[in-house]
């Protein structure tokens, strides 16, 4: 961090000012002039919180994508299909048993199994042929999309939120001050906060596992140079299968999350594939912290954009990608 400030003082200053302005906007009581200029604070706060929680969801999808890409150089364009499949599995389990937690576990296991099968049956046969693997993932995404359309139809499904998470809670954020001087606190859906907290926990756990455990060490070594790693006697194929299973399983969990606070339907696979692509391009390919940062930026940009400039919201997301590519093609938190 200090090295970053030393090397890029201007960028560090801009970042610090931007973060400070954002924090002020979130915590301060807005003066009336500001409310007149850009609308009520409650709308802004909701957009920011929606953006942050959406970022959590994007992180879940994109972290699996970036992990698989980082280790295996496999641009898994079927990742969106894995997300959607996880969502459908989660819906089926939740509808059958009524248990929200169980649907997470089953979705993780089922999608991870799909990932294991894909790695063993398909990708192992064409190791080192990046482009061919990518083409295969495109073909698979078409096949999966059509199979899921066949099995589940074109309907929208929503996974039921468990009763103990329904309803809003008051956050210690002032959204407005009544003329009587009474503070109005922001109400926000509890389930979104819980899901966001869970994705933060998952992210931190992944970071710890990658940086503090032996398996994590092996995976990081594989990201840097898988040939040398294989030469040292590590069972690289086993590592590949494990990482693919983990990445796919995370997409499955993300599917259940997405099915809970949005909905699942055909076409969502493409949407989340695009989201993961943009997130990892912005954050830096193959980097977990990069995926977290990228997911946060894209989530915020998407939600704030859709509130303040509705017809150009997607352009904001896209412009962020363009700017990052133009200034730092390897991504914001790139390893190399």
């Amino acid at each position: 961090m200090t090295r970053f400030i030393e090397r890029h003082p201007a960028w560090a200053l801009i970042t610090i000012i931007a973060v400070a302005v954002l924090l002020w906007l979130i915590f301060a009581v807005w003066p009336p002039g500001l409310e007149q200029a850009i609308g009520r604070k409650r709308i802004f706060l909701n957009a920011v919180l929606n953006g942050i929680t959406l970022g959590g969801l994007y992180f879940l999808v994109a972290s699996g994508f970036t992990l698989i890409f980082g280790l295996m150089r496999n641009v898994n364009l079927a990742h969106g299909s894995l997300y959607l499949f996880g969502g459908y599995v989660g819906y089926a389990i939740s509808a059958a048993t009524g248990s929200w937690i169980l649907s997470f576990i089953v979705a993780f296991v089922a999608v991870a199994l799909v990932g294991v099968l894909l790695q063993i049956i398909v990708f192992r046969r064409m190791e080192g042929q990046d482009l061919r693997q990518t083409m295969v993932t495109i073909g698979l995404s078409i096949v999966f999309a059509d199979l899921m359309l066949w099995a589940f139809g074109g309907n929208f499904y929503q996974i039921e939120t468990p009763s103990w998470l329904i309803g809003p809670i008051a956050l210690p954020l002032v959204s407005a001050v009544r003329p009587s001087g009474e503070m109005v606190y922001l109400q926000y859906p509890l389930v979104r906060l819980v899901i966001f907290a869970a994705s933060v926990v998952i992210g931190v756990a992944m970071w710890l596992a990658l940086n503090r455990t032996r398996v994590g060490m092996i995976i990081r070594a594989g990201v840097d140079d898988r040939d040398i790693l294989a030469a040292t006697g590590v069972q690289i194929q086993l590592v590949f299968v494990l990482v693919f299973a983990l990445g796919a399983g995370l997409a499955g969990i993300a599917g259940v999350v997405g099915g809970t606070f949005q909905s699942i339907s055909p076409g969502e696979d493409t949407r989340f594939l695009l989201a993961s692509l943009v997130v990892v391009i912005v954050g830096g390919m193959g980097s977990i912290p990069g995926a977290a940062l990228g997911a946060l930026i894209i989530g915020l940009a998407e939600q704030l954009g859709s509130v303040y400039i509705p017809t150009y919201a997607i352009v904001v997301t896209f412009l962020i990608m363009v700017v990052v590519l133009a200034l730092r093609p390897q991504g914001l938190v790139a390893r190399r």
Partner: peptide, 22 residues
């Protein structure tokens, strides 16, 4: 190389969503 696919796919998808919104 392989990043080209990702970036061009992102451009294509962004254009699709943009035409939908605009």
């Amino acid at each position: 190389g392989i990043y080209t696919i990702m970036i061009t796919l992102a451009i294509g998808a962004a254009f699709y969503y943009f035409t939908n919104q605009n």
